[in-house]
């Protein structure tokens, strides 16, 4: 078994990261956490997570950026909001998961071939193209990009959906795609302006 050093030095902390989280929408209450763990206990997925939500919050506010962004936890969050509802300090845990996911995608530190971030990106691309999402095409696209083998295992489901008329290979599109793209372009411009500052 390979030995791994678990000791953490203060130099490994990224204070800016913690401050960034608290400035993002939903991250405001991060520091109020009293580490009660109700988020982890109510989470239907914490049993699969490498860090429980409580621990992730603790790591985030102490500035352990690498651990936080490369954790599986943020990708396993299914956005069911149970943690947020139960939190005694009104910490918007789900939104913190979202902002951490965005940062992880931005910095390209999410796990390779892990389908969730790929799905998220493809979802965005499809909206840009058609204005709506076609689940069939999205799923096909996803598996082509992540796991061919899994895709083959899905044929049974595909046939079932075909049979019940729930699958369609023709994407639904909106009429005023230009209008939508203008909105997105305006935000791109805004972002460029911000990063230039």
């Amino acid at each position: 078994m390979p030995l791994e050093q678990k000791l953490k030095y203060e130099a490994e902390r990224d204070v800016k990261f913690a401050n960034w989280v608290t400035r993002e929408t939903g991250g405001e209450n991060l520091r109020h956490c009293i580490q009660c763990g109700v988020c982890s206990a109510t989470c239907p997925l914490s049993l699969y997570m490498d860090y429980t939500p409580r621990r992730l919050i603790n790591l985030a506010r102490e500035g352990f950026k690498k651990e936080v962004l490369s954790s599986l936890t943020i990708w396993l969050c299914a956005s069911c909001y149970a943690c947020r509802v139960e939190c005694p300090k009104k910490i918007q845990v789900t939104d913190i998961m979202y902002l951490l996911k965005r940062r992880a995608i931005q910095e390209g530190v999410y796990p390779r071939h892990f389908p969730i971030p790929v799905l998220a990106k493809e979802f965005g691309r499809m909206i840009f193209l058609f204005g709506r999402v076609n689940e069939t095409l999205l799923v096909i696209d996803l598996f082509l990009r992540t796991n061919w083998f899994r895709f083959l295992g899905m044929t049974r489901l595909g046939m079932n959906l075909m049979r019940t008329g729930r699958m369609s290979f023709i994407p639904e599109q909106i009429k005023r795609k230009r209008e939508l793209r203008k909105i997105l372009a305006a935000l791109d411009a805004e972002e460029q302006k911000e990063s230039a500052l």
């Binding site: 993002e24 965005r102 998220a120 979802f123 965005g124 999402v133 909106i174 209008e179 909105i183």
Partner: peptide
């Protein structure tokens, strides 16, 4: 001419755009 709301997935990519989709 409604568009996709962005669901949970788009929120993981871009917060503001995701709100703008719903905004439309």
């Amino acid at each position: 001419d409604w568009n996709c709301c962005g669901a949970t997935a788009y929120m993981s990519v871009d917060e503001t755009k995701s709100y703008a989709l719903a905004g439309r």
